[in-house]
Design a protein around this nucleic acid. Structure first.
Lengths: 351, 351
DNA sequence: TTGAAAGCGTTACCAG
DNA sequence: CTGGTAACGCTTTCAA
């Protein structure tokens, strides 16, 4: 071999082509099918042959071509993960967990991110072209899109999105339940006027949360409600609180933010902008249970999404359906963890 | 057609197979090659034919199979993105931007996440099997791995990692420069004793940062240095500050944390745990410039990584090399944005 | 402009 | 257990 060093470079130049099972077969002096078998699960190859093949493969730096394999097996071993806005401090943990868990099952993650949930059409088209085995999405689809995907037979699991009138698989945190608890506790503790800081227009989650809060407020006969809307961000949270006060003439007893980050913004604005004591003068609550919500300076009263369990559920739900496409649809809703933080004045313990 | 409804279901059952260019060709009464051409860029097809094909394709819900295309063109149009720990609040923005930008160039992102940077071996193996056109990694590779990838001819761009003795492409934030500025300003403002809160053992970035800080401290003849290490998290930040005080007997004039989140933990612990005023009694600085660093309650003095520009640079660097593999290696280091926050007592303005 | 035919690198089936 | 051969769905010459 060392004799060929001079030529070697030549080969490298010409043969930038990656080694195929054919090359390995030739070098090992066996058939190509044999090579294929060695690199499979239920292989049936004699130890002698396996050794020769592996040795040759190693020599050539051979790796089975997953693309070609996918073509013949009709299984790409890739799933599409569609996220809408992971800028929210919240999704990142999910993503890491997702890719790792999927990876353990030999499944790769093809990631798609959209600015607005409306952009899903083109994304969906791409996922279909890439023959993904399944789709995990944190963005809604139109009924037409739903039907397209269904016709093709690709299982889809929705993450924190659900439909009333469609048969879909979904895993979500029960936003409404969480908000109802927050509102209930606040009212019970004597809060009479409320501010609501909504999330962005196109956020389904925000809509669910604020709707839940409103419903509960109505049931409790609270009518002093002011609302404004932001974009889930910190700065917007600050501005929203100011707007709330301006609109109402004074700060409401309690402010309900659609997420923790805006709640934190509200707290800062209340303290710095208006010299209010939180929770002495007013209460502020959020939703999500993200990291910063538990920083000592804020200690936000919130509902924490059980991210780990939700992700776990979503993954197994999708994997199951990839394995068995005829499984009937399933919707799983997880209750959030109730965090009685220090940003709201609530009655001692227990409901 | 409506006459066939009864059979239709049958077809659906049997023919769950997706429509191929062949099916379209048959329905449109043209050759398969024609169909292929219609779905390409530099197509050469008459309008008449194009119309018939598109119509047939629409009818059948045909979509070109990107996997098969990749097999023949030797281009998967996928890049692997390897991230090590995006739990750090920091990487998420990067990821979204990455996938969107790549997407604009018709490139899909195959995501891989590793717990520890050491796990990269198996990940790398996977990316190679999937015939990715390029790799963008936030994890180091061993020289052997580097050589493997190079031999195969897949361009790699390192994100916030670099090598002294290897020819690689990299985009990074100049951690050392940032730390040197922080230390310089602190010393100039009269701080004499220093605490250093390092990140996790296996974090290259943390190592670079603390090394930079130490070097500058030595140059400035500061010897009163105590150090502890954490895991980049908030809780660990709090514990680390307490440990620092315990080890030293009292709090150092200034504490340098390897990232913002730990800096925030330190601030909270200093205030709540020790009743210290920040920055009245002591100064605390971080690194990254993540969202929470600018929350009013913390206003961390830090160096913000120019994430947007770095990502942009990494993307074009990789795309260029996919287009032209023989481009010579390039290393780009961006200076961080110096944020004179309120968590440290510094001299007025200007250096 | 169009069609026929030859691959791309696998797996799957079927004899031996 | 092993080797030959036919797909998989597409792009790409090469003639017509």
């Amino acid at each position: 071999m060392s004799k060929l060093v001079g030529i070697d470079k030549n080969i490298d130049k010409l043969d930038r082509r990656r080694a195929t099972s054919y090359d390995v077969a030739k070098l090992a002096g066996v058939s190509q099918s044999a090579v294929s078998r060695v690199f499979q699960q239920g292989a049936s190859a004699s130890k002698a042959m396996r050794d020769r093949v592996l040795h040759a493969a190693d020599e050539l730096g051979y790796r089975p071509n997953a693309i070609a394999r996918g073509l013949i097996t009709q299984r790409s071993n890739m799933v599409a993960v569609i996220i809408s806005k992971l800028t929210n401090l919240y999704y990142p943990e999910v993503l890491v967990q997702l890719t790792q868990r999927f990876s353990e099952h030999g499944v790769r993650v093809l990631l798609f991110a959209l600015e607005h949930e409306g952009d899903i059409e083109s994304i969906l088209e791409q996922t279909l072209q890439y023959q993904v085995d399944g789709i995990l999405t944190a963005a809604m689809m139109t009924p037409a899109q739903l039907r397209t995907v269904d016709r093709i037979g690709i299982p889809v699991v929705f993450y924190n999105r659900s439909y009333n009138d469609e048969l879909v698989n979904s895993v979500r945190c029960d936003q409404e339940e969480g908000e109802r608890w927050l509102v209930g506790e606040l009212v019970k503790a004597g809060h009479k006027s409320f501010g609501i800081v909504e999330g962005p227009e196109d956020s389904v989650v925000s809509a669910e949360r604020t709707a839940g809060a409103r419903r509960k407020l109505r049931e409790m006969n609270i009518t002093d409600i002011t609302s404004v809307s932001g974009d889930y961000g910190y700065d917007t949270g600050r501005r929203c609180f100011a707007k709330l006060v301006a609109q109402r003439g004074s700060a409401p007893d309690a402010t309900i933010a659609a997420n923790d980050v805006m709640a934190i913004g509200c707290i800062d604005e209340a303290r710095e902008g208006f010299g209010l004591d939180v929770p002495g003068d007013i209460s502020i609550v959020g939703f999500d249970g993200v990291g910063p919500a538990s920083y000592a300076a804020y200690d936000v009263t919130t509902v924490r999404q059980p991210v780990g369990r939700m992700t776990e559920a979503a993954i197994s739900m999708l994997l199951e359906r990839i394995e068995n496409p005829d499984l009937s649809p399933e919707k799983r809703a997880f209750s959030g963890l109730r965090v009685r933080g220090g940003s709201a004045r609530l009655l001692s313990d227990e409901t």
